[in-house]
Design a protein around this nucleic acid. Sequence first.
DNA 1: ATGAATGCAAAGGCTTTGCAGGGAG
DNA 2: CTCCCTGCAAAGCCTTTGCATTCAT
Lengths: 145, 145
Amino acid sequence: MAGADRMSESAAVLRGAGLRATGPRVGVLGALGELHHATADEIAAYVAPDGVAQSTVYRALEHLERAGLVEQVTLTPDRRTYHRTSSAAHLHLRCTRCGDLQQADVGVLRRLAQTLDDTAGFRLDTEHPVLTGVCAACRSVSEAE
Amino acid sequence: MAGADRMSESAAVLRGAGLRATGPRVGVLGALGELHHATADEIAAYVAPDGVAQSTVYRALEHLERAGLVEQVTLTPDRRTYHRTSSAAHLHLRCTRCGDLQQADVGVLRRLAQTLDDTAGFRLDTEHPVLTGVCAACRSVSEAE
DNA sequence: ATGAATGCAAAGGCTTTGCAGGGAG
DNA sequence: CTCCCTGCAAAGCCTTTGCATTCAT
C-alpha cells in the first residue's frame, strides 16, 4: 500500500541523512511529501490526528532542516511554513488581498536571477521563492468598484 | 529645527488622511520616515525611548495602514515590519543565511512583472517587494569552505 | 463637551525550553 | 544498554483586547 511505501521511503531518507527513523519524524516527512507545504499545526494534524506533541513536531522540523531535508518559506508574517527541499522548484505567488497562493514556473525568474547576480552579487532563491502581489480575482473586484 | 518640521509635516499628513494628530501617531509616522522600515518595538523605541504603550503603537499602525499611509512588509515570519507607502519604490533583497537586507532598483522587475501579468493575471507588487536568496558575503563564505 | 486615543494589564497565538519517561539502534 | 527522542507542561515572544482615564477637536 502507498502509505507503507511512503513510510519506508521516508524512513530510508531519514537514515540516509543520519537521523533516527522515529514515528513522528517519518510522519512529518511524509506529511510534507503529501501536503507540499504546511504549517506546524497542519503537519501535526496530518501526522497523528489523535495527537502529537507540538514540541515534537517543532523539534523534528528543526532536525530535518539542519539535515537539509526541509526548508522554511516565509509565506505569512505570523506563522512559519515548511516544505521538503527535494520538492520540485516552483514559484509561489501570494495575493496580499485574499491570501490566495498560486504557483508558477520558476523559469520566469531566470533573467532576473542573472541580473541580480551580475549587479549585486545576490544569488536569488529560485527553488521555492515567494512573490507577493494581487491575484486576478482580487484585481477584477477592485476594478468593479 | 528638523524635528519640528518632520513633526508638523507628519501632523499635516495625518489630518489630511482624516486622522487625529496625536503625539504617538505623529511619532510613529515620523519614525517610519526616518527608519524607512521598522518593527513595532523599533518604532516604539524611536517614538519615546522612555516608554510608549506597545498597544498604542500597534493601534496607531493599524489606523495608519487602514488610511493607506503605512504598509506591512513580510521580511521575516516572526515579526512584522512596516514602512510608509510614500517611500520611494525599492526592492528588498534578504539573505536567508545572515538576515542581511540590501536594496535594489525595482526596475529589474519590470520584465518579470509583465510576464506574470500576461501569464497569470497576477499583478506583482513592485513598490516594496521582498526577494530572498544568498548575499555576496555569505556566498564567498560557503565557497571558501 | 464628546467621542476617540492612550496606558496598563491581562489574554491569545505560535514557538521554545525543561525535565522525566520511553524507544531506536 | 545507552543515548536520543517523545510528551507534557510551563515559559517566552509578539500581538490583540478590555477598560478607565486623558486628550484632540
